[in-house]
């Protein structure tokens, strides 16, 4: 147990760990590390773990809508959520949106990262910085832009009509499509960065070896580059999924009041009816979905790395 965690720790801190190995076993070294970590661990325990613990506790108090007796403590909210169509619909919609976002983001970001790697000057220069600009500008401004673009009489509708795709303006806002479009745009730079980093680590001599053995560009891609870059794709998918399931501003504005997802359901539950118990329950469900996927995908990545 101890040995395996030590191995894990040293694997994570590989670049610097090697240089500082001398201090690893000394109690003095660990004591100092403990001192450096203590403020952060105390701070996070008080203002992250404790609040989340209270949230978990509150999720077992009964929501006012359930009219349970005072002092009730149990899974009533969870039972209610899992038996109520509206809640189930919202959970399924959330996961469906996330699935579409992950698929489209990977489909768009892989070729982009590939081009960055192929034309190395692009990847090393400001091109990626410019591409990642929306993640710095923040989702609010970006969603404002989508609201202007996708409005009923807005530019996108005029282009669609000019192209003859539709004859009269269609309603794009207040649809799941609008949420998916905005989230793909928002998550794309994160995914491109991850896949680009993975592609950059594919060693050039492996591709050269395949070339010298007569493999065509397509075969080189399919049998060498793609398999070696798959961990990067998977980690891009993890990041995209967790950004999508956590997103609030895009569904709040582009989905309208009718296309609720789990995050907007939490805000409705608190700001609409100040039902902290039910909001806590939804938050716990959201965390379970989000962390399960992230942890499962991460352990798949670790297993993959261990095999190689």
């Amino acid at each position: 147990m101890t040995e395996s965690t030590a191995k894990l720790a040293s694997a994570i801190s590989k670049p610097s760990g090697r240089r500082w190995r001398r201090r690893r076993s000394g109690t003095w070294g660990t004591g100092q590390a403990r001192l450096l970590l203590l403020p952060a661990l105390a701070f996070l325990t008080l203002f992250l773990v404790l609040p989340l613990g209270i949230t978990l506790y509150n999720s077992f108090l009964a929501s006012p809508v359930l009219a349970k007796p005072d002092g009730y403590f149990g899974a009533a909210n969870y039972v209610y959520i899992s038996g109520t169509g509206i809640y189930i619909d919202i959970i399924i919609r959330t996961l469906r949106i996330c699935a579409f976002v992950v698929i489209f983001t990977i489909l768009f970001s892989y070729p982009t990262a590939f081009i960055f790697r192929r034309y190395a000057r692009l990847g090393s220069g400001s091109a990626i910085l410019i591409l990642s600009f929306p993640m710095l500008a923040g989702p609010l401004v970006v969603v404002l832009g989508w609201m202007i673009l996708l409005a009923d009489g807005g530019p996108v509708n005029s282009w669609l009509m000019w192209l003859g795709i539709t004859s009269s303006p269609i309603e794009i806002l207040r649809s799941e499509a609008a949420i998916i479009i905005a989230l793909v745009q928002f998550t794309l730079p994160f995914a491109v960065l991850n896949i680009f980093n993975a592609l950059s680590q594919v060693e050039h001599h492996l591709i050269e070896a395949a070339r010298s053995l007569g493999a065509s560009p397509l075969r080189r891609f399919w049998h060498v580059i793609l398999p070696l870059s798959l961990p990067g794709v998977l980690s891009a998918a993890v990041i995209t999924f967790s950004l999508a399931i956590s997103s609030f501003i895009a569904p709040a504005y582009l989905g309208g009041g009718t296309k609720l997802v789990m995050t907007t359901l939490i805000s409705e539950t608190i700001l609409g009816s100040y039902d902290l118990a039910m909001a806590s329950t939804i938050a716990v469900v959201l965390l379970v979905f989000s962390l399960t996927v992230v942890i499962a995908m991460n352990s798949a990545l670790t297993r993959h790395a261990a095999r190689r």
Partner: peptide, 30 residues
């Protein structure tokens, strides 16, 4: 430094990045 549970401690400290922000805000309200 290398120390025990380094991976877990790192994940814990980086956790606010992957937790839904709306849940963080709500937890602070709670």
């Amino acid at each position: 430094y290398d120390f025990r549970f380094k991976g877990m401690i790192t994940a814990f400290i980086m956790a606010p990045l992957i937790l839904p922000q709306i849940v963080l805000g709500m937890a602070m309200l709670q």
